[in-house]
Write a protein that binds this DNA or RNA. Structure first.
Lengths: 204, 204
DNA sequence: CGGGCTACCGACCGAACGGTCGTGCAAAAA
DNA sequence: TTTTTGCACGACCGTTCGGTCGGTAGCCCG
């Protein structure tokens, strides 16, 4: 039986109705996040979908492809933030804030997909490729931090690599607790993170 | 063959020399962190130890017990921070800073063990029990954040639950990149985190 | 030098894994 | 109504999983 009501993409399609790749993917990603990718068997997935294990292979060639599709969606979102003009115009300070806000936006909009990405351990080739794309993203942000530091916008008593890692740690940890649709909007969360990271928690 | 040179606890023991439980545990935890707990088979573990799979069961009754032993070590360290007098004396502000510094210290000293703890997904009963102990720890720190807020030491425009989660996100993410013995000492790292979290990255 | 202690080996087990294959069946298009 | 299209089924394959068992090998102490 189906755990949630996420059946097909309602747009009229021919043939016997049922799941399509997107809806299978959504359920799969949720399961991967709940139990971990390796710990999620195709049998468990089939049970949650309410179909047989072999039926899954009608929608996707392998378990690894489910992972690849999900990671592509997450990475595509992050990479598009860096391609926005806002990431290349103005002071490094402002560019950095733009990218961080954009990252948080992607993270909340594609929450389950990014969550999956951030929990990879690099066991398979698919995971290692995704991790490399993610590291490339991190490097671009690190360059922004460096620029903002040289510009004099950011304190110099903390090593820039440490700075970058702490920023990413703060932002990436959002996937561990943020619930879209709750009282905390993505916009307010974005403001909160920017305030803490740049101005600190102490009262002025 | 052995991957690293961490054989027995050198203290003279009777009988045939080889691994003891502690040294097996150390290698196991490292492997769990490298591949993920579920993705690490007892066969892989045996290969890394340089002994047969069945020999592992001489040192520990099950794979789950390896996990439990490791998590106990991590949680014990964290819980002892809260039992220190420094966590109960003085202003909430200072108590909070004390606990955060203590947490970072435990995290760096018992790095692989805490890393394992922070990556749990709650698949098994063992994991769920550990997660509950970890949540209890988090709740105590959240209470400190609340107290510091009421005291007026901490800004009020961010929800205290958000504040707590961002703090933990920042601190916990340290396990993903910190390398003991490198140029960044645990003390300097502690200072950096406290500076960013309370005073922000912007130049004053 | 022999007994006791500790560490280890290799063959094996039932269950679960990811994945394949041939077939059945429902609904939209013709 | 017939054809086409696409979803799903269930039996099955080779492999690997965590774990068991009976026996062996090396070391210290008396």
């Amino acid at each position: 039986m189906t755990v949630d009501g996420s059946r097909p993409a309602s747009t009229a399609r021919r043939g016997r109705p049922g799941y399509d790749q997107q809806s299978v993917l959504a359920v799969a990603v949720a399961a991967f996040n709940r139990h971990g990718y390796e710990a999620t068997s195709m049998g468990m997935l089939a049970e949650e979908l309410g179909i047989s294990k072999s039926a899954i292979y009608h929608h996707v060639p392998s378990k690894g492809d489910l992972l690849r599709l999900a990671l592509d969606h997450a990475l595509g979102g992050l990479e598009s933030v860096l391609q926005d003009p806002g990431a290349h115009a103005g002071r490094a300070d402002a560019r950095l804030e733009f990218v961080l806000r954009g990252t948080i936006a992607v993270l909340t909009e594609r929450l389950p997909f990014v969550t999956l990405l951030l929990r990879l351990r690099g066991n398979t080739e698919i995971e290692r490729e995704a991790l490399e794309r993610r590291r490339a993203f991190d490097r671009e942000v690190a360059a922004l931090v460096d620029a903002a530091r040289h510009e004099g916008s950011i304190r110099k008593d903390i090593d820039p690599r440490t700075t970058t890692r702490l920023i990413f740690g703060t932002i990436n940890s959002i996937v561990e607790w943020y619930k879209p649709g709750g009282p905390l909007t993505a916009g307010k969360l974005s403001d909160d993170v920017i305030h803490m990271v740049f101005d600190g928690l102490h009262r002025r």
